[in-house]
Measured scan of single mutants.
Amino acid sequence: ITIHVNGVTYHFDNPEEAEKFAQKMAKTYQLKMEIHNGEFHME
């Protein structure tokens, strides 16, 4: 699972971890999250 946050790329093997991380980042930084081709993009 690949997550892009403001141009920084994070890779996770565990989908649950990826989702937790994505939600935490979105909440902490008030980010808008989109999913493209199974990759999370946040800005």
Rank of each mutant, 00 (worst) to 15 (best):
L31F: 07
G38T: 04
P15Y: 12
M33C: 15
I3L: 04
P15C: 15
M25S: 01
K24A: 08
M33N: 01
Q30N: 08
F12D: 00
E17N: 05
A22H: 03
F21D: 00
T2R: 12
M42P: 05
T9L: 10
H36M: 05
F21T: 00
F12R: 00
D13T: 11
T2I: 11
K20T: 08
E39V: 05
E34F: 13
H41Y: 14
N6Q: 11
I3S: 00
A18Y: 03
M42E: 02
N6A: 12
M25H: 01
D13V: 09
P15A: 11
N14I: 10
H4I: 08
Y10C: 14
H41T: 04
H4S: 03
K27P: 15
Y10W: 07
H36K: 12
I35W: 05
K20H: 10
D13G: 09
Y29G: 15
Q23N: 07
V8R: 12
H4G: 03
F40S: 05
H41Q: 02
H11D: 04
K27R: 06
I3P: 00
E17S: 10
E43M: 14
D13E: 10
Y29I: 14
L31R: 01
Q23R: 09
V5R: 01
T2S: 08
E39W: 07
E39Y: 06
N37T: 03
H36N: 05
K20D: 09
E34V: 14
I35D: 03
N14C: 11
A26V: 03
T2F: 13
A26M: 12
I1E: 01
K24C: 15
G38I: 05
H4W: 12
M33H: 01
I35S: 03
T9C: 15
H36P: 02
H41N: 03
P15N: 07
Y29F: 06
V5Y: 04
G38W: 05
Y10K: 04
E43F: 15
E19Y: 12
A26Y: 13
V8G: 05
E43G: 08
L31Y: 07
T9W: 05
H36V: 10
A22E: 02
M42S: 04
F21H: 01
E16M: 10
E34S: 08
K20E: 09
T2W: 13
N14E: 06
I3R: 01
V8E: 10
F21L: 01
K24D: 11
N6K: 12
G7P: 00
A26W: 14
I1S: 02
T9H: 13
N14F: 09
Q30M: 05
Y29K: 13
V8Y: 12
I1V: 07
N14T: 07
Y29H: 15
M33R: 00
N14A: 06
H36I: 14
E19M: 13
K24E: 13
A22D: 01
E19R: 10
N6T: 07
E43I: 15
D13W: 11
N14P: 01
E17I: 09
L31C: 15
A22T: 04
A22M: 07
T2E: 05
V8T: 09
Y29W: 02
H11S: 05
E16P: 03
H4F: 07
H36D: 02
M33K: 00
V8Q: 08
N6G: 10
F40P: 05
F21S: 00
K32N: 12
K27I: 12
A22G: 01
T2P: 04
N6H: 13
H41W: 13
Y29A: 14
T28L: 15
E34I: 14
E19A: 12
N37Q: 05
E16A: 07
A18I: 02
N14G: 07
V8F: 12
E17P: 01
M42I: 06
Y10N: 01
N14Y: 06
A26S: 07
V8I: 11
E19N: 11
V5P: 00
Y10L: 11
G7D: 11
N14K: 08
H41F: 13
T2M: 06
E19D: 10
G7I: 15
T28D: 15
I3V: 11
Y10H: 08
Q30P: 15
E17R: 08
G38E: 04
D13S: 11
M33T: 02
K32V: 14
E17F: 07
F12S: 00
F21N: 00
F21P: 00
T9V: 12
E34N: 05
M33F: 07
K24V: 12
E16W: 08
T9D: 06
Q23S: 06
K32I: 14
A18E: 01
P15D: 06
N37S: 04
E16Q: 07
N14W: 09
H11W: 11
E34T: 11
L31S: 08
E19T: 11
E43A: 09
T2C: 12
E19P: 00
Q23D: 09
M33W: 09
K32W: 13
A26K: 10
L31Q: 10
K32Q: 13
L31W: 05
Q23H: 06
E19K: 10
A26L: 11
K32G: 11
F40R: 03
Y29M: 12
N37D: 06
E43H: 13
Q30Y: 09
H4M: 05
K24Q: 10
T28R: 14
E34R: 06
M42F: 09
T28P: 00
M33V: 13
P15S: 07
N6F: 15
I3H: 01
T2H: 13
I1G: 01
K24N: 08
P15K: 11
Y29T: 14
L31V: 13
G7N: 11
V8P: 00
K27S: 04
G7S: 09
M33I: 14
D13A: 10
Q23G: 03
Y10I: 12
E16R: 08
N37V: 06
E43Q: 09
H41G: 02
I1W: 11
I1Y: 08
A22C: 14
V8H: 08
A18D: 00
H36R: 12
I3W: 02
G7R: 07
H11G: 02
E16F: 11
Q23P: 00
K32C: 15
F12Q: 00
E19V: 13
K20M: 09
I1D: 01
D13M: 09
F12Y: 03
